[in-house]
């Protein structure tokens, strides 16, 4: 490990604060702009946007077809395009294919659709191991992929951003689009999880 990864979080926070103060002092950044951006990612932009796309695709076959053919303009129909999601490719999980997204070069991720990437997505371990040993990485996420299923790893190293369309779980046939939206997790849209149906209360001992 390189030495910079050994700094504690408080060291990094201190350094960021020092840099921020300097940039504000020199008039290079406006604190109001920074506050607006932080507020947007804390309250408005996040995985719930991606979940809306997935749920719509599950209930509307026509939308799903367009989404898989032209992700960018189909996502724009829902008003969910934006920064770091300008060129979108949606890949579909099926009983034959499981897709996993990584950016080996840095941390490219569809921000407008999934929010900011989780820390593990940016870690050296995930970025190197997701391409070398995807099945091992998925196992550590609790996902055993059958040897009959093809694992496709997508390295989003250029300017296209990827979203996994997870499989709709069995037993959700009668659920509304809004209820389906609440089932879809961030990790399912990266490919490190499947969408689960919550256990009905009467089955919980």
């Amino acid at each position: 490990m390189s030495s910079h990864s050994q700094h504690s979080e408080s060291d990094i926070a201190l350094r960021v604060k020092a840099i921020e103060s300097l940039l504000v002092e020199k008039g290079i950044i406006d604190p109001a702009t920074i506050d607006m951006i932080i507020d947007a990612y804390e309250h408005r932009i996040g995985p719930h946007n991606g979940a809306r796309i997935v749920a719509r695709a599950w209930v509307d076959p026509n939308f799903k077809q367009r989404l898989l053919t032209d992700g960018t303009s189909t996502i724009a129909e829902l008003g969910l395009a934006g920064f770091s999601s300008e060129h979108m490719i949606v890949v579909e999980n099926t009983p034959e294919v499981h897709n996993l997204i990584v950016c080996t070069l840095c941390s490219c991720y569809p921000w407008a659709i999934l929010g900011l990437p989780p820390t593990w997505y940016k870690s050296f371990a995930y970025r190197s191991r997701a391409v070398i040993d995807p099945r091992g990485v998925l196992r550590e996420f609790g996902l055993e992929i059958s040897n009959h299923v093809e694992v496709r790893v997508w390295d989003s190293n250029a300017d296209l951003r990827y979203l996994v369309l997870p499989e709709r779980p069995l037993g959700t046939e009668t659920m509304t689009e809004a209820a389906l939206t609440s089932l879809v997790t961030r990790n399912a849209m990266i490919g490190t999880a499947k969408v689960q149906v919550p256990t009905p209360p009467e089955l919980v001992a």
């Binding site: 406006d30 109001a32 300008e86 060129h87």
Partner: peptide, 22 residues
């Protein structure tokens, strides 16, 4: 440009992004 980004410019950036196609 390396000029101070205003709140409005940042909103536009988040909304429309940066087109890399040409």
């Amino acid at each position: 440009s390396n000029e101070c980004m205003t709140v409005e410019q940042a909103k536009e950036l988040l909304r429309n992004g940066i087109n890399c196609q040409i």
